[in-house]
Design a protein around this nucleic acid. Structure first.
Length: 151
DNA sequence: GCCAACGTTGGC
DNA sequence: GCCAACGTTGGC
């Protein structure tokens, strides 16, 4: 079963928002980068996803969610009022996808970015590569195990 | 708030 | 198809 990591600004959507919506579904929409979108398309129901908090006070991996609905056309691309509106997208030819996710667990404590960077074996993870801006990325089983060790 | 790194756009 | 200009991301 593939595993993933997604970045989010906690002011927009945090692990606590998922926890507060336990048993419910939260759409993962607004992805507007082709490489990230291609990974979204590969997600399958049941895949586990690490939630990474970016651009905030406590940067790092905060918890785990799971995919509960695989990719469908992101409705926000058709909504002129939305900041995620894409005028070049049409319902016949949608450019962007969303998936639905649901809460699994919070990490007992935040796995901080500097801790992540200090662990060997994560060189291949796009998250720790310099200048990387990819917001949806695959995580290998090995990387997953390293990240969740001692947590 | 700064700024390096990156992706996208659009003129040519 | 090149590439400069621009906008955005995201750590610091």
């Amino acid at each position: 079963m593939p595993k993933w990591l997604v970045k989010t600004e906690p002011s927009e959507c945090s692990i606590d928002d998922f926890a507060d919506a336990t048993g419910q579904t939260i759409p993962w929409d607004g992805v507007r980068n082709y490489q990230a979108r291609n990974f979204l398309r590969q997600m399958r129901v049941g895949d586990q996803v690490l939630i990474y908090h970016s651009s905030c006070k406590h940067i790092g991996i905060a918890g785990i969610v799971k995919v509960v609905e695989s990719a469908y056309a992101d409705p926000k691309q058709f909504d002129p009022e939305s900041p995620y509106y894409d005028p070049k997208s049409t319902p016949d030819q949608p450019r962007w996808q969303a998936v639905d996710m649901a809460f699994v667990s919070k990490l007992p404590r935040l796995l901080a970015l500097d801790t992540i960077k200090s662990r060997p074996g994560l060189d291949g993870l796009p998250l720790v590569k310099k200048g990387n801006r990819l917001s949806v990325m695959p995580v290998t089983e090995d990387q997953w195990a390293i990240l969740l060790a001692d947590n």
